[in-house]
Amino acid sequence: MIRFSNASVTYPGGVQAMRDLDLTIEPGEFVVIVGLSGAGKSTLIRAVNGLVPLTSGQLQVNERDVTTLNRSGMRDLRSEVGMIFQGFNLVDRTTVLKNVLMGRLHEAPTWRTLLGLYSKADVHLAAQALDRVEIIDKAYVRASNLSGGQRQRVGIARALAQEPSIILADEPVASLDPPTSHVVMRYLQQIGRELGITVIVNLHFLDLATAYADRIIGLRDGALVFDGPGSECDADVFESIYGRSLTADDTMAKQAAL
């Protein structure tokens, strides 16, 4: 479970990217966060695994109080939370399998990692993760030789290899074309449903958001301005979240048609 209580984030420059947020996300929910660029979506996601510290308020993730964790507590928390990135964040020069094995580092002793040794169990988990996103045949291919959609599937497999209870995805399809975006979103949805993992996704396009979200959270200027099921989220609601009328840029289908 994830619970923000009266949580705020103010960056060193003075920008307040999270304002008195009260939000509870139950295990297994598939939540999509929407909002204009700069609304604080990334900040919210990155607060969950401690990449961005709160400036005030409380945040509980899996019974841990994120604001008071020491270094090893933080590493333990992060091992339970998988993360997927807009730019994939793969090591291009190494193989797909080695990239996915990065998800097992928390469980491996440092000396084994230094020698490049991975336990059989870790390799098995990595293979399972690759199999789930149907890219296991590329296990020994260099990551640089994959297409964007394949790279993001490797990114998902790396997160899955952690055996996480939560997966965070910060604009995971922003660098992909529409058909590939749907493939990636469907894998995320499947993972949530079949493995019971909580999935939190930042999305830019509201047609994608309504197509996949069980629950949509709208942010504006760091504050929560909408929280409801995807079915309740129509054009009027989006206009209120965005604070302006919708344009072709806001939906993937229309933007692709431009």
Partner: peptide
């Protein structure tokens, strides 16, 4: 990018 990914997975510095 990969540095961020490793840190986010709970890996140690080394």
């Amino acid at each position: 990018g990969p540095v961020e990914a490793a840190n986010a997975s709970g890996a140690g510095l080394t």
